[in-house]
Design a protein around this nucleic acid. Structure first.
Lengths: 232, 232
DNA sequence: CGCAGCCTTGACAAATGTCAACAAACGTGG
DNA sequence: CCACGTTTGTTGACATTTGTCAAGGCTGCG
């Protein structure tokens, strides 16, 4: 593993505080691999052999049931995914595939569990990470159960706008068919939802979104820190 | 705190392995309280002052937005709730209220965090608990996004049947208006959904459900371990 | 008994999904 | 760089699902 990537991983909140020897042990059995876009990395139901770290690119976590499929989360660098399955030595609940060309580190789950038992700082970091993940899924649950698809889209746009710097015009960070799946609707419905937001000053051109009347949109979307804020 | 309740808490997975002195310190600032039914225990957005342990009764975790309300989880004895908020010292994402007369222990979040930093065994137990909670919310997310309300009800009945011992006839464990909220639909819709399951041999009388044709219902519901199993 | 809350039902409205058609964007190989 | 085919996005028409409102029955409790 190149020194720079070793550093990047080491600097993740999850690994920053652990003992050197433990981090070394953890990365000894690890390897880093490049994947093209649209490659399946893991499949739900399989045993969780590796904790994955996205070093570059992007990964989609999704699930299937009865012929249907839905996107549950997008993982962007630099962060880990399927920590919970690794820790519990339980089967993956979600499948993962690359969205773009991606570089991914794989740490054997077995080592993660072993070192988690030895290193208190690591255990605490895992707690912080899991608590964060948990809260973020709860927010997603609230978003889904309390809002209509139009409201979900409106709030998603406001969140995305903030992440992109806050300007009135910004780029969607993934293709619309996936956005539809993330928001829990069909692509056709998303198209119509965009049109439904026009009265609030939203226009779209390809992946470029412009919010002409910020106040109108916010009055409609009613964003709430307990659903829409990244931290907290 | 009575000795028997002290024991009950001590025996929870979360506390079983921690050092005696730490457990003592944790319970020193704690207190136990009885609440009647339908009492608000916490409100979303408030700082998380206490980790709660349900000793008896039942607690509903729910959330509101824009005048709507939804039930997210039911906590039954003996287990804790809002662990994630306590650990992160973040505001509650959900409100809680008693469903019945309940006995609840309150452990100061500050102490939980302090001892979590001192006690590796405790930290590990918290990890196990949080990973479990995380996975269970992900399952809920899949249930919501991949299934129609009729399918959600069918699978809920099968899960409930198993929990109740597996007999063809069993009791719903909460009132229908709440079940509707848990499943993400209106009470009216739930009524109709029950009728919609009649072709698969489901009949309801008050809170008593009978599944006459187990196979038919399962063929329709297509239960899946990665969504419906409690553990794993 | 009489009230209050829950459940059910019907009629209707709104939201969302499906299917088909087509246009636009993209990538590949010539 | 173009031609081609594939994928993605959009739109319309329509079906299905879900929600809303209003009414009435049932039950439990004071």
């Amino acid at each position: 593993m190149p020194e720079s990537e070793y550093r990047d991983i080491r600097n993740l909140d999850l690994f920053a505080q652990m003992k050197d020897e433990h981090f070394t042990a953890l990365t000894r059995g690890a390897y880093v691999q490049n994947f093209p876009a649209q490659i399946d990395l893991i499949t739900e139901g399989e045993p969780s052999d590796f904790l994955h770290v996205v070093l570059s690119g992007a990964v989609d976590l999704f699930a299937r049931w009865n012929g249907r499929e839905t996107s549950l989360e997008t993982v962007r660098p630099i962060s880990t995914f399927i920590l919970a399955a690794s820790i519990r030595d339980a089967p993956y609940l979600m499948s993962a595939r690359t969205l773009e060309k991606s570089r991914i580190a794989l740490l054997p789950s077995q080592d993660v569990r072993a070192i988690f038992d030895l290193d208190g700082a690591f255990a605490r970091a895992i707690v912080a990470e899991l608590a964060q993940c948990y809260r973020s899924v709860i927010k997603g649950q609230k978003d889904l159960k309390l809002r209509s698809s139009l409201e979900r889209l409106a709030n998603h746009l406001l969140r995305q706008q903030r992440r992109a710097g806050g300007a009135a015009a910004f780029e969607l960070d993934f293709e619309k068919r996936r956005l539809a799946s993330v928001l829990g609707m069909t692509p056709e419905n998303l198209s119509r939802a965009f049109k439904g937001l026009r009265p609030y000053g939203v226009t779209v051109n390809g992946t470029r979104v412009t919010i002409a009347h910020q106040d109108d949109l916010e009055r409609f979307a009613k964003p709430n820190p307990l659903i829409d804020d990244v931290s907290s």
